[in-house]
């Protein structure tokens, strides 16, 4: 088995995950894309483990750990999404703009920066 094949598949999966994280509005879809990226990593780990013939099976064990952590992450992520949904009635990522200041027209008042919403 050439290492190139799984590694290329993994790179493509990872890029697709990146696209999903960046382009999807729905928070659950973003979580799914994160899962895609994690799986790409898993594939990489397994492929290199096989290639290196590691007798301790570090790659595969780490894959198992990643799977476990991914499960935990999905659980927590969904809990957060649900909490957001409870308070905001929406899970659209681009409508959660609390990070930004409220933008005024320039010169229409003191730029005091104290108006976080």
């Amino acid at each position: 088995m050439h290492v190139v094949y799984p590694v290329v598949v993994s790179a493509l999966l990872f890029s697709i995950g990146v696209y999903g994280v960046l382009a999807r509005r729905n928070a659950i879809l973003v979580l799914m894309s994160v899962e895609l990226m994690l799986n790409a990593v898993n594939l990489n780990l397994v492929a290199f483990d096989v290639w290196l013939g590691d007798r301790l099976h570090g790659g595969q064990v780490l894959t198992l750990f990643v799977i476990v952590i991914a499960a935990a992450e999905v659980g927590l992520g969904l809990a957060i999404v649900l909490a957001v949904f409870r308070t905001r009635r929406t899970v659209d990522v681009d409508r959660l703009r609390a990070l930004a200041e409220v933008v005024r027209a320039p010169g229409s008042g003191r730029p005091d920066g104290e108006d976080a919403s």
């Binding site: 994280v21 681009d94 959660l96 990070l99 320039p106």
Partner: peptide, 15 residues
């Protein structure tokens, strides 16, 4: 104001 157009609070844009 021009610069803050980028800082619109959309985390996806930041990422």
């Amino acid at each position: 104001g021009l610069v803050r157009l980028a800082q619109n609070g959309n985390a996806q844009l930041y990422v």
